[in-house]
Every structure is written in C-alpha cells, then in structure tokens.
Write a protein that binds this DNA or RNA. Structure first.
Lengths: 208, 208
DNA sequence: CTGCAAGATTGCAGTCACTGCAAGTTTCCG
DNA sequence: CGGAAACTTGCAGTGACTGCAATCTTGCAG
C-alpha cells in the first residue's frame, strides 16, 4: 500500500526486498573498496547481517549481485516492447523501446557507474553481463521477427538486428558512463541508432 | 622443421603442443559425452595423461579449453588487419579481414560445431567466449580509429563499428553452425556486412 | 486467536575449481 | 658435460557453491 510496487506488499515480501538490498549495498561497497575477487561471500553476508548460506538464496553467484537490476530491466524492456503499436515498423518499435528504457538509466546513473567500475576490474562480471545481454537479444529478436512476419529460427535478420542494435547500445552506454554520465544518454543512443539505420557506409561523414 | 609453424621447433615446444592437444581432445570428448559441468578437471587430466595440477599450466580455467583456439584466431585477425593496404577505407579493411579470417573457419567447422554444442549447454563457457570477443573489438576498433584518423577513447565510432560488425559476425556464424556449417560462411558474412553498410533501414527489402 | 502449511534462515558436510609453493625432473645451450 | 631455464607434480589451502535437514517466521484458514 505504502510501497511503490504492485498492490499487495506483505511483510514477507517487504522483508525479502530489504534483505536483498542489504546484500547489494554491502557487496558493492566491498567490491569498490577492496575489489571484486578479494571480497568473500562471508564478508558480504556478515555486512548484510545474514548467514553465508542465505546469500545463495538471493543470488546464484557473486557476480550476479553486481547485475542485480538486470532482470528488472529486462522485464521492463519486454513490457515496453509489448506496448508499442502493432503497425509500427520493426526498427522503429525497437528504437522507441530502447530509447524509452534509456530514460530509466539516467536516474540510475550512480548505480551504473559503480557497476561499470567494478566490471572494469572483474572480467568474470563482465562475462556474466554479456551473457545476460543475450536475453535482451532474444526479446528484441522475437519482436522484430513478429513485425517482420518471419520465423526467428529460419530467418537470420531478427537476431541480426537485435544483436547489432544491442551492441551499439552497449558501446554507447559505456562511452556515456566513461564521460561521467552527465550528458543526454538517449540522445547518444538516438545518434547511434541513426547511424545503424543510415548504414555504416556513412561513418566518415560526421563526427557523431 | 617438419611442423607447420615457425622455423625452430624444439622438443620442448613440440611436446608442449602435444600435451595441449591431448588436454583439448580429452576435455571436448568428456564435455560432449557427459556435459561440461559434471566433467571434472581430474577426469580430463587423467584422460590426457597428466597430473591435475598440470592442467592449470596449460589453461587458466575449464571453460578456456573449449575456447582454446581463440588466442590464435585473434592473433590471426590482428595479422590480417595489419596487412591491409594503408589507403583502404576503414570499413573495407575490416570487411576484407573478417572475410579472410572466415575462410579459416570453414576448415575448422567440426571443431566449431563441437564447441557450439558445448556452449549451448554451458552458460559460463558462452560468457567467457563473449568476454573474449571484446579483445577482437579492441583490435578492430584500433584499426578503424587509425584509418579514421581519430582517437579510440574520444570518438565512439571506432568501437561502435567494431562492436556492431562483430555482433553481426557472431550471429552469422551461429546461424551457419545451426544450419550444419555446410554452406558458404564468407558469403553469409558478406551479406550481413552489406546490410550493415547499406543500413538497417533496408531490412525488409530482401530476405537475406 | 489458533494452528497448520508454506516459505525463509541457518548450519553442516561435502565437492570442486583454482592457487602458491617447493621439490624433483627434463630440455636447452654454451 | 654442466648449469640455467622450463616443465611436472604433489601438497596444502582458500573460497565458491550445493544438498540436506532442522528450526523459525509469516500467511492464512477456520
């Protein structure tokens, strides 16, 4: 009732969310201070006020704590994609959805910056992150396939579009974070998507 | 002298290559038969006729055995990229290099198929593979930056081009393997690269 | 409000990947 | 031939992660 989420928020649910947040906060603090690899689950658990064993009831691995928001964002992407008008062109739908989701990123800038810094020094976290991005690819590919009226398995184009656009988004976000995340992310992404639609052949034309 | 590689092939070097191959063969066999995760390093070592500890003198992790050829291929890519004429346009150089490297893939089809099958059931291997692909990105981005006369750090375009083209290559290769790897991979890749150069706006035009 | 079912926490014991170290062995090369 | 350098191996240890079973908490029906 007083919470932001859906209607029913029982004690149980609230407590769980609270513990989860405690774990994430504790973990990110440790990772930032002493690095990812040297930090043990035991330490994180202690900081979060739980037993080590309990940690694994919340996250399947240490790396997943850094990517805690991933599932939520994927759900959001699917949701936004589904809400797009049916007569919209495939690329336009994907573009609009990605830009809409990018808006959320602006508010999470600080959290993203922290995650990016951790990832820079922890290859396994980056690896996991990239692997998760394939779920985004899948979501986008399906939408493109439907709108293109083809089968995802038989026609390469849906996956091609999905992979390519997401790669562009990834690089753009990375550059945005590297620049401090102060400027307009959606605008950067729009530029990148423009380039893709227009074709890489025009790469030398203007300095983005 | 009798080996394919460079001039001097001492006993040491030859033996090392032989052991390495034994490990890869043993590992891939096990992974295929009983799955990646259930296979232990101990088993692989036993099959390859070495001590478990020695395994880690050859590969830093279990997943890396599946991607054993990665380093060599990356070196090959750099090499091919470096050999491209200096006056060639950035995209043309990258395109030519990727197509050239794709030729090698044809001969390694069987090995690639095995690796792909293992990866399909082992997320951590896929993760590692994607992470390694960032090294390819780096290599390509640098070349594009030089040919574009810009700085890799300040201008997003080099990384953008690199990430996008590699994403396309990845999806194309995947589709090729899924189809059994019998048809012409370079042709598939050329088609994908054409699409990128022409722009995704033309996605609905022809069925690739 | 009471009691039971479902869910959550925890400890325990165990497996396995991976590491540093040091001792022993093999290859290289002058 | 003899020592330097590289390779192999065993040992001991750390730490992520899992299954199991006991215990406790919350939700809900009566």
């Amino acid at each position: 009732m007083d919470d932001a989420q859906a209607g029913t928020t029982g004690l149980r649910e609230r407590k769980r969310a609270q513990t989860r947040r405690a774990i994430v906060d504790a973990a990110l603090a440790r990772f930032t201070e002493q690095g990812f690899s040297p930090t043990t689950v035991e330490q994180i658990a202690a900081d979060a006020g739980i037993a080590p064993r309990t940690f694994f009831h919340y996250f399947p691995s240490k790396e997943d704590v850094v990517l805690a928001d991933h599932d939520g964002r994927l759900a959001r992407l699917r949701e936004v994609l589904a809400r797009r008008p049916a007569d919209e062109a495939p690329l336009a739908a994907v573009r609009a959805a990605l830009l809409e989701v990018a808006d959320d990123y602006l508010e999470e800038r600080d959290r993203l910056l922290v995650a990016a810094r951790i990832m820079a020094g922890a290859p396994t976290v980056l690896a996991r992150s990239l692997e998760r991005q394939t779920h985004w690819e899948e979501a986008i590919a399906e939408v493109v396939a439907v709108r293109l009226g083809v089968d995802v398995v038989r026609d390469v184009r849906p996956r091609l579009v999905a992979a390519v656009t997401l790669a562009a988004m990834r690089v753009t976000q990375r550059a945005w974070l590297a620049a401090g995340g102060t400027d307009d992310l959606p605008e950067r992404m729009a530029d990148a998507l423009d380039l893709l639609e227009r074709g890489l052949g025009s790469i030398a034309d203007q300095p983005v």
